[in-house]
Amino acid sequence: MSQNQYTKALDAAGVSLWLDDLSRDRINSGDLQNLIETKTITGVTTNPAIFGKALTTGTAYDAQLAELAAAGADALSAVVEMTTDDVRSACDVLAPVYEATNGYDGRVSIEVDPRLAWDTDETVAQAIDLSKKVGRPNVMVKIPATEQGLPAITRVLAEGISVNVTLIFSLERYRQVVNAWLTGLERARSEGRDLATIHSVASFFVSRVDTEIDNQLEAAQLPAEQLLQLRGRAGIANARLAYRIFEQMQDTERWRLLSSNGANLQRPLWASTGTKNPDYSDVRYVNGLVAEYTVNTLPEDTLNAVADHGEITGNRIPDNYEMDDAHMDDLARAGIDYAQVVAKLETEGLEKFVEAWNELLEGIEQRLEQYK
């Protein structure tokens, strides 16, 4: 089986494509392996909503649910057992990619209980537990970039555990994430850990920014021409300006010292890259964010669209900084409060994950009852 030309071109441009989905059916059927072989998938990300869909539909988990019910498991322990089993299996499928890229790719992410997002100590404890329970070197633990999550990120990295920092919306918060990551590596180094084994990505959410800002622009009743000029551009502009922070970080003495000790870059990961507005191209959040040392995590529909009609242009992210700065200024002049937007998106993002997690627990509780 040959690689798709468009996904292969993205990989050649320095963009790692990770699948934003996982289920036992996808693993057992060989579908995940097929996507690695034909569509250049080099990693997997998960979240509570993804596991909620996987664990509460179909029959793939029935046998394990029956065993867990017989053992007296509650919903939470059952969910942890099943999700860590799936992540471990996916890690094994991606192990050849992990080995071939020396740990750069071949990663599978599992998220801490989103209800712990405001509790630093509990987040750290569960991150360590999840890493041990999966028991594979290519697992990444997802930690939300809340204020309480920042010190947790530092502490988990200091333990030598690879971290996927999730739910980043603002440039200010991204700078704080970069600092938390650098501090974690510095602590790991001081404790004698091998920095070359620690990897991290920073998941910057894209399409949700457009959804919120577009809604506010529509509500502002701007002249049609101005609205057309402003809508649908903030998500990519925001992400590209985050990439500028990533570039600036590499030109610091702090990073150079860590790099000389074997540290790996914390790559920007573009998340929420499925297009939500049908007026926009279904590949806009892939085509518009091509740069080396990045990851794009894609829902399967978006991956298929990219494979079908993706495009690698010569327009690099750094070529757009001036235009992106100007666009953000134009939004401010149109009455968009950037700080309010990103704060709202972080709050809503966490609420959605907590809601999905609670629905998952409720669904598993009901299924466990069926076996008792």
Results as ranks from 00 to 15, higher is better:
165 V>P: 01
1 M>G: 13
297 T>N: 07
84 T>L: 09
196 A>I: 04
95 A>W: 15
83 T>A: 06
133 K>N: 08
222 L>W: 09
40 T>R: 10
56 T>P: 02
206 V>R: 02
149 G>C: 10
78 A>L: 07
230 L>F: 06
70 A>Y: 04
136 R>W: 05
31 D>C: 01
82 M>T: 09
100 A>F: 10
343 A>R: 14
138 N>S: 12
114 P>E: 05
146 T>W: 02
287 N>H: 06
104 Y>M: 14
358 N>L: 14
299 P>A: 09
152 A>P: 08
68 L>C: 12
217 L>R: 12
243 Y>H: 03
188 A>Q: 03
110 I>D: 02
223 P>K: 12
297 T>I: 03
184 G>Y: 02
82 M>S: 09
193 R>V: 08
161 I>S: 02
8 K>W: 12
22 L>C: 00
200 S>M: 13
328 M>T: 15
323 M>W: 12
333 R>H: 13
28 N>Y: 12
352 K>P: 01
314 G>P: 13
151 P>A: 06
238 N>H: 04
229 Q>G: 05
204 F>I: 00
276 K>D: 09
99 E>G: 00
249 M>P: 03
203 S>W: 06
260 S>R: 14
153 I>M: 00
174 Y>H: 01
319 D>A: 07
357 W>D: 03
141 V>I: 15
226 Q>H: 13
217 L>N: 08
115 R>L: 14
88 R>F: 14
314 G>C: 07
286 V>C: 01
60 A>P: 10
195 L>I: 02
154 T>E: 11
211 T>Y: 13
345 L>G: 01
